[in-house]
């Protein structure tokens, strides 16, 4: 039988394997390395003190990410009393969107309006990070968890404490907005071809 301390040490050993992923996620949430480091430390501190709450049979990575996300939201609320989710709810839904770029981005039947999209994407560097950082927080988190951390919709739903349908919607809208930004950027560089109606 393991003592409490041994269990904690063992738990720390396992939990620390996710340190890189957790730090990355913290970085995407906070937007800078110093805050990401603080948030990662806070997350482990909380996780190790509450390791008894970890439910056997559930995904530890998702559990740690959920702690990080909640800790981040708490920090924001303490700092600026910011209504964290309101910005997302205020956004126009894709179906009601009327902007030129958004229309293009969301009307998938028209395909891509960017000429030689693959070549254009290869030219990207920091622009993608900038556009990503401009997305609403919850959209950005869902997209990063899906595309960078390769979590399933179910796991993302655990992290974000929302239904799988909401995850699907957030990822879809995040991609729509990202494509909208790419479209405008491509247009400013003359990479946009004539739209067909």
């Amino acid at each position: 039988m393991l003592s409490c301390k041994e269990k904690r040490s063992a738990f720390a050993g396992v939990a620390l394997r996710h340190a890189d992923s957790l730090y990355r996620f913290a970085f995407y949430l906070t937007g800078n390395e110093a805050d990401a480091e603080d948030l990662t430390q806070d997350t482990y501190h909380h996780a190790l003190r509450n390791c008894h709450q970890f439910q056997s049979g559930t995904d530890m990575k998702a559990w740690l990410f959920r702690i990080a996300r909640n800790a981040h939201i708490d920090r924001l609320r303490r700092k600026v009393h910011e209504p964290v989710l309101s910005e997302m709810e205020d956004l126009p839904s894709p179906e009601k969107s009327t902007g030129e770029g958004i229309d293009w981005a969301l009307d998938r039947r028209k395909g891509s309006a960017i000429d030689r999209e693959d070549v254009f994407y290869d030219l990207f560097g920091d622009e993608v990070n900038r556009f990503l950082s401009e997305l609403p927080r919850e959209f950005r988190a869902a997209l990063v968890l899906c595309d960078v951390e390769e979590l399933s919709y179910q796991e993302i739903a655990q992290v974000m404490e929302c239904p799988v349908g909401t995850v699907r919607s957030r990822i879809s809208r995040a991609r729509g907005l990202l494509r909208d930004k790419l479209y405008h950027y491509a247009k400013s560089l003359g990479y946009v071809k004539e739209k067909t109606v």
């Binding site: 340190a19 990355r24 994407y121 990207f124 920091d126 993608v128 997209l143 990063v144 960078v148």
Partner: peptide, 10 residues
């Protein structure tokens, strides 16, 4: 997104 998003190391 997979390829170009910055992936900082801890």
């Amino acid at each position: 997104v997979e390829e170009k998003v910055k992936k900082p190391q801890a």
